[in-house]
């Protein structure tokens, strides 16, 4: 799985680099695009390595479940 992710991101780096170069974008754009790509890549790897990591759903449930239960009562 990790190999697929690395290959996918290698393709994306080459593709976006060519795109930005053809469009003559500023250095700042390169930084933003590749920093966000780095974050996305790290997140993908982390989800594979730590399979039982808490997800955003857990946070949303933690914050909103008690409130919804108060409003609606317990729903099966």
């Amino acid at each position: 799985m990790i190999i697929i992710i690395i290959l996918y991101f290698l393709f994306t780096v080459i593709y976006e680099w060519t795109y930005l170069k053809n469009k003559n974008r500023k250095k700042r754009t390169y930084w933003v695009v590749f920093c966000l790509m780095g974050i996305s890549f790290s997140y993908c790897i982390v989800t594979v390595v730590f399979k039982h990591m808490p997800s955003p759903n857990d946070l949303i449930q933690f914050l909103f479940k008690p409130l919804q239960q108060k409003i609606l009562g317990k729903v099966d």
Binding site: Y8, T12, E16, S40, T47, N57, Q61, K65, Q69
Partner: peptide, 28 residues
Amino acid sequence: FSLAAAMVALSLQMSGGTAALTSYYTKS
């Protein structure tokens, strides 16, 4: 393309199974 990978990873990571997903949807 980079955010699409994050979206797919998030979809896989967000829940252990359909029951947990349904619980999230119905309760919060």
